[in-house]
Amino acid sequence: MKKIISFVVLSLFGTLQAQAQSAEFNTRAAIAARCTPSVNPIYTKDFKWGYELPEMLLKFTEMYESPKRLSKNAYFDSSTQTIRLPYYADRGGDVVVDESFVQTVARHIEKGLQLDVVDAIFFPDMGHSHLLIPEKLMQEKYDRFPVQEMSRFYEEVFRDSQIKFLYHTAEQLKMLDENNQVLPDPKIQHRHRTRNLVGENHSKAEMSLVQNPASAANTVSEVSGYFWWGAGFNLSANKNGCFAYRAHGRVYYFDISLYDLEYDPSDGGW
């Protein structure tokens, strides 16, 4: 019998009614003007595990200003006037997404930052997602897509307001001591409590948190009532990124990809 991890949903948003700040920067025309494929990919070796918080923030600034971006990132195809997420050719090829999907993800980023449950948009912090698909919906619709049509699966999911996206945050932040106890720093304890951020998939999306007390790192890997789809999308902010979010009084840019960080081939694939 499958074990369901216990979790608590925390409501954060009764007093926060901020509108999506970056929609004007994520129209199709705005995206078309700046969105190109990356040519200098981020590799796994660009990061490490166990960042101290100030160190992680410095690394974010370094990576934001660098030429390195997510590989196989979403790009604007001028020939078809569409936003395309590269995907495996034998699974249907590129995934076509609407600007509404981009605006939703940007809203998730902005709200995470506003609520102080996220500090940086890249792999060491808020850099990857998982999909929460209602179990009934999974059985009736999404479980029927064959492997060779997985690109269509993603196109449907990314337009479906019943789907939720779960972001594992503080991914490479040092939160535990040698005894797997949360460090005494109040900021680190807060980030540990809030590291499973869930966003609704629509333009007025609100956010919530889930927790897993059974995990030392508070890592949620299943949510009652939802099918857990582990292969979500990845995020990384960069000055040359395709899409925009507002934070701290300025506009930042970021990329989206369906591919995980790769090993550097010049290092023998490690």
Results as ranks from 00 to 15, higher is better:
Y253W: 11
D143F: 09
M207G: 01
A217M: 07
V210P: 00
V198G: 00
F158N: 04
L166G: 03
Q139Y: 06
P41F: 01
V198I: 15
I188L: 15
L113Y: 04
L57A: 05
Y245L: 08
Q148H: 14
C35R: 02
A18E: 12
H190Q: 12
Q21T: 11
T169F: 02
I5R: 08
G241L: 05
V96I: 15
S266V: 08
A205M: 01
Q103V: 09
D260L: 13
P134M: 02
F7C: 11
H192I: 08
M138L: 13
Q21S: 14
F7W: 01
F13N: 15
Y51W: 02
I163F: 07
S203H: 12
E99V: 13
F7A: 12
A231C: 05
A106C: 08
S66K: 06
A214H: 06
W270L: 10
F165M: 15
D143C: 11
Q162L: 11
S208E: 02
Y253R: 14
R144S: 14
S38H: 05
D94Q: 01
V147F: 08
Y252M: 09
Y263S: 14
G92V: 05
A74E: 04
Y43F: 15
F60W: 08
Q181W: 00
I4A: 14
K141T: 11
R84E: 12
F145L: 12
S129E: 07
E206F: 03
D267A: 13
G14E: 15
F122Q: 07
H190I: 03
V223H: 00
G225W: 05
H168C: 08
V117C: 12
L183H: 05
Y87S: 04
F233R: 10
Y253E: 05
F145H: 09
E55Q: 14
D177W: 09
K174R: 14
R69L: 03
S151T: 02
K239D: 04
M138Q: 12
D185I: 06
E200S: 10
Q114D: 10
R69M: 09
E206P: 00
L85W: 07
L173I: 12
D98L: 14
D143T: 08
G112W: 01
S151K: 02
G112E: 02
E99D: 12
S6Q: 11
A244M: 03
A205L: 02
Y259T: 11
R246S: 10
V102G: 01
M138V: 08
R193I: 02
S236A: 15
K48Q: 09
V102F: 02
E155D: 11
V95D: 01
T44H: 06
G50R: 01
E222N: 15
T104A: 13
I256F: 03
G241H: 01
Y43I: 05
Y226K: 06
I31H: 03
V9Y: 00
F153I: 07
E99R: 08
T80D: 04
P54H: 01
S38N: 13
L113P: 00
E65I: 00
A18Q: 13
N179T: 10
G112S: 06
K72H: 12
F145P: 10
P37R: 12
R250G: 04
S79P: 00
Y259K: 13
V251W: 10
R91I: 09
K204G: 13
S11M: 09
Y167D: 05
K59F: 01
Y88R: 14
